[in-house]
Design a protein around this nucleic acid. Sequence first.
DNA 1: TCCACACTGTCAGCTGGCTGACAGAATCGT
DNA 2: ACGATTCTGTCAGCCAGCTGACAGTGTGGA
Lengths: 200, 200
Amino acid sequence: MESDWLQRLPAGRQNLYDTGEMICRPGMAHNRIFMLNSGSARICLSAEHRELTLGCLKPGSIYVTHTRAWVESLEPTSITSWPIEQLTLLIVEAPEIAITAMREIGKMLQQATTLIEDLAFRSVESRLARYLLLEESTQQCQTIQLTGQTELLASLLGTSRQTLSTLLNRMIRDGLVARPDRQHLILLDTQRLQQLASVS
Amino acid sequence: MESDWLQRLPAGRQNLYDTGEMICRPGMAHNRIFMLNSGSARICLSAEHRELTLGCLKPGSIYVTHTRAWVESLEPTSITSWPIEQLTLLIVEAPEIAITAMREIGKMLQQATTLIEDLAFRSVESRLARYLLLEESTQQCQTIQLTGQTELLASLLGTSRQTLSTLLNRMIRDGLVARPDRQHLILLDTQRLQQLASVS
DNA sequence: TCCACACTGTCAGCTGGCTGACAGAATCGT
DNA sequence: ACGATTCTGTCAGCCAGCTGACAGTGTGGA
């Protein structure tokens, strides 16, 4: 749906990135809007020795470079980008684009709000439970596929590798979830997970 | 500048609120855009027994009701509101409005990012220092005016009343700031505050 | 097949910040 | 002018989660 209007833009610049390369970093020279064609990337904030992943970009996702966040490719990734001024011009010509774009930004704001709520009010365990339930409903299957390893998930939940590992293994011991193999998790006791997710 | 284009909208609905009244709460029936005419209000998230203030609205500020946040008036306040659909229609007719609106939303996203960074990476003391320095540069004067009392500032920094009080008084004892009276603070040692703000 | 290296689990120790409690200061209504 | 109410400062006790350390488990290359 979004790609629909992006295709009407004049031809953009193509770029390829290797695993781990930075697609953009804060304070980059030019303000561009880009769409991810293939591969995947994570949006993250970072400080001294910590990182927090705000979200992941998949093929079709749109993002802008002028943020205070970094974007790092997680696998070989290709993007198409345009200077932001072209978007402004196009909006004048085809206003319905603006509405779509605003909806996109709104979604991001929504996501940011959720994250703020989580960080401010909820324990790591609760955040983990919420994440699991959310993933279950996003991927239709009840066996959920983890992206990357512990480290990445930890930074997605805003915690340390160790804490996440401990918590996850406790959940397994308590029979809330099972892990058939490294990359997959099965939610066994949705009831109790929901309880964990809502309380504190 | 924003009020400029809002005035071109068809006449909106006027509403008055007393101190402490809720202007909007999450999951409200209709999705409206509003502008604050007079008074002030705070945007906040809340859980069981805690609250986090995301920001304050002043005369001229624009906001929408469909968020997961609450908006509470801090003093007798008047707003004008329009159903969100009217904005959509107007964008089609006068596209430059969209650009302004997107800039507004962008600013909010920026603010949200800062908050996330703060909550995830920084200590309360550091956040307090940042806040003070920011207020100093916003209000031109170096004697800064506090809005509301300790409780409100605490929730703005995402901490408890007690912690904030302790920290602030320690800063006073250490000569970083002075407090001529309840409602005002003078920054004495900007240098050290900057240090606190950047580290940890 | 074996070594190197990256990922994972777990533990002990520490600490920032929360909570509840309470006394002192301001402010307000009548 | 004096109770009542709200706001403020401070303290002791507690705990979630961070850190560093280290052993165990994969996994891949030559």
